[in-house]
Simulated scan of single mutants.
Amino acid sequence: MTDETAIASERIDRLASLARDAVRDGYPDRARAYVRRARRVAERHRLRLPRPFERSTCGNCDVFLVHGVNARSRTQSGHVVVTCDCGAQFRYPYD
């Protein structure tokens, strides 16, 4: 990993934590901007977003999902179904 990609990975992690804090503090638009910026950084440096980051963002409205605040999760036949406030649903197998 080069220095440039290491810096980009650190920036993505920092933007993810800022997005999480923004949602918890009641600023969903700010969190959405952080998520979009993190995706742009990953695209620019041809990096894959970390799995925890991918699974905690909505691909439809770009908001950072915090369970109980703007998302709900249910288990269903070997999968976790996460539903965003916008209505988008995401299914993940148990890890």
Rank of each mutant, 00 (worst) to 15 (best):
N70E: 04
H45R: 14
V69L: 08
C61W: 03
V41F: 02
A33Q: 10
R51D: 04
S56C: 03
P52S: 05
R30S: 11
S56V: 02
V63H: 06
A33R: 13
P50H: 09
H67P: 00
N60P: 00
L47D: 07
N60H: 13
N70Y: 06
R46G: 04
S56Q: 06
Y34T: 04
R51L: 02
C61A: 07
R39I: 05
A31M: 03
A33K: 15
R51N: 00
E54D: 06
A38Y: 07
V35A: 13
L47M: 05
R48D: 14
R46F: 02
R32E: 08
V35T: 15
S56M: 08
T57F: 09
V35Q: 12
N70I: 00
L47R: 04
D62L: 03
Y34W: 10
C58V: 05
V63C: 02
V66K: 03
V69F: 12
F64H: 14
A42S: 12
R37L: 15
R39L: 04
H45C: 06
V69K: 14
R39H: 09
H45S: 10
C61V: 04
N70H: 05
R48Q: 14
T57K: 11
E43L: 08
L65P: 14
V35L: 15
N60D: 15
A42N: 12
G68V: 01
D62M: 10
R32F: 11
E43C: 05
P52I: 07
V66E: 09
P52F: 10
V63G: 00
N60C: 13
G59P: 06
N70A: 04
R55A: 11
N70L: 05
L49H: 11
R30M: 13
L65C: 12
R37N: 06
Y34D: 13
E43R: 13
R30C: 14
C61R: 07
V63T: 03
A33Y: 03
T57I: 14
R44P: 11
N60R: 14
A42M: 08
R46V: 03
A33C: 01
H45Q: 09
R32N: 15
A71E: 04
R46I: 01
F53R: 00
R51W: 01
S56T: 14
R37T: 12
R44K: 11
Y34A: 07
R46Y: 02
L65E: 15
S56P: 02
R32Q: 11
R55P: 07
A71D: 04
H67E: 00
A33D: 07
A38L: 06
R32M: 15
P50R: 05
R32S: 10
N70F: 02
V41T: 05
V41G: 01
N70Q: 07
D62A: 13
C61D: 06
N60M: 05
A71V: 00
R40G: 08
F64G: 13
G68Q: 04
H67K: 00
P52C: 01
G59K: 08
R46W: 02
G68M: 03
E43K: 09
H45G: 15
A31I: 09
N70S: 06
R51T: 03
G68L: 02
A42L: 11
P50W: 06
C61T: 10
V35K: 15
H67R: 00
V69C: 10
R51Y: 00
R51K: 01
R30W: 13
V69I: 13
